[in-house]
């Protein structure tokens, strides 16, 4: 049941993206920016948190969950440190994923070569 909720919510978030891709001229890069920023805004107005409580990874794993983590981090940062927190909070909360992407990206670039599509 838990996994079914994750599957359906996660899948539906991606479906919204797919519909945008197929019916507009937006590229995947546009979609990522739109979803991330939506996550930030929905997180800020308190609408994303219930979704995460309901579907956990189904709402955390999509990039909108990354946006939620950014805005939650910024708000928590303000609560703890005031104005400084607004600047450090978002990145602090998401630093793990970003640092991992940089490190693994670099390692992958050293180890692997791109292959032609067939």
């Amino acid at each position: 049941m838990e996994y079914l909720k994750v599957f359906i919510v996660g899948g539906l978030i991606c479906v919204i993206g797919q519909i945008l891709l197929d019916t507009t001229k937006l590229t995947p890069a546009h979609i990522l920016v739109i979803f991330l920023t939506s996550g930030v805004v929905l997180g800020a107005v308190g609408l994303y948190k219930p979704l995460i409580e309901f579907a956990e990874a189904g709402a955390i794993v999509p990039i909108s969950g990354f946006g939620y983590a950014l805005s939650k981090g910024a708000i928590d940062g303000v609560k703890a440190k005031g104005i400084i927190g607004a600047f450090v909070g978002g990145l602090e909360a998401t630093a793990g994923g970003i640092a991992a992407a940089i490190l693994f990206g670099y390692i992958a670039a050293i180890v692997f070569d791109p292959k032609t599509k067939s």
């Binding site: 899948g11 991606c14 993206g17 891709l21 670039a109």
Partner: peptide
């Protein structure tokens, strides 16, 4: 998967690793 592969955080990793390799 289209957006199904792009929107999860694995797709974010893909968008960083693929140009780095290239």
């Amino acid at each position: 998967g289209g957006a199904g592969a792009a929107i999860p955080i694995t797709g974010f990793a893909n968008s960083i690793v693929s140009p780095a390799m290239e």
